[in-house]
């Protein structure tokens, strides 16, 4: 495990990493500040998704994770697993949620940062104000030959008028600038889900 990838980190946060890999990852966490920060972020996201943030002071969570990960990097895998169980408290199937969240984070990162590949369609130059928002990838554009660029521009303009989620909604949407899905499954988009309100 010379280079820790995000899937391994995700599995670690969800306590689903194998014993040997866990031991090696814990060693790496002991020496890499960047990796520790990423692990803490994933843990917080997982807890947020599970609605499992500690109630007294959320800042304690990353502190506790950091302390545990850095204090005994070479401890046995079994002991490490025990520690994580105490820290992250996956609740039944809730561990799955953290994985889902992490996969989502990774897919977003991959998508946004995808470098231009051999282009079936020329990547448009950044010509005007809205164009640079969001990551262009030629592969993305060729896959969506119907040109979702216009939808993305519409979305950014629309977002300036949106009010959802308090005052943050429009800005969040500008930062994210997601891709358009041209063939949404309308039924799936509004289907019943276990992720429901109380």
């Amino acid at each position: 495990m010379k280079n820790v990838n995000n899937e391994q980190l995700s599995a670690f946060v969800d306590d689903e990493l194998g014993t040997q890999e866990t031991e090696m990852l814990v060693r790496r966490l002991g020496t890499s500040e960047r990796l520790r920060r990423t692990a803490m972020r994933y843990a917080v996201i997982g807890d947020a998704v599970r609605d499992d943030l500690i109630s007294s002071d959320p800042r304690r969570l990353p502190r506790r994770v950091s302390r545990a990960l850095s204090s005994e990097p070479a401890r046995s895998a079994g002991a490490a697993n025990q520690t994580r169980l105490g820290l992250l408290r996956p609740l039944g199937g809730a561990a799955v949620a953290a994985s889902v969240a992490l996969v989502a984070v990774l897919s977003l990162s991959d998508r946004v940062s995808a470098p231009p590949e051999s282009a079936a369609v020329t990547v448009p130059e950044i010509a005007t104000a809205n164009a640079p928002v969001g990551g262009y990838s030629s592969a993305m554009i060729s896959r969506r030959a119907g040109s979702p660029d216009q939808l993305r521009r519409y979305y950014l303009n629309h977002s300036q008028y949106a009010t959802m989620l308090g005052g943050q909604g429009p800005l969040i949407r500008m930062v994210r600038a997601p891709d358009a899905d041209e063939n949404p499954d309308e039924a799936a988009g509004e289907a019943r889900s276990e992720d429901s309100v109380e």
Partner: peptide, 17 residues
């Protein structure tokens, strides 16, 4: 032109189009 939005339903973020 090539830049027109495709006909029919689309989805971007939480928005339907």
């Amino acid at each position: 032109g090539d830049q027109v939005a495709p006909d029919g339903a689309s989805r971007i973020g939480a928005a339907n189009a």
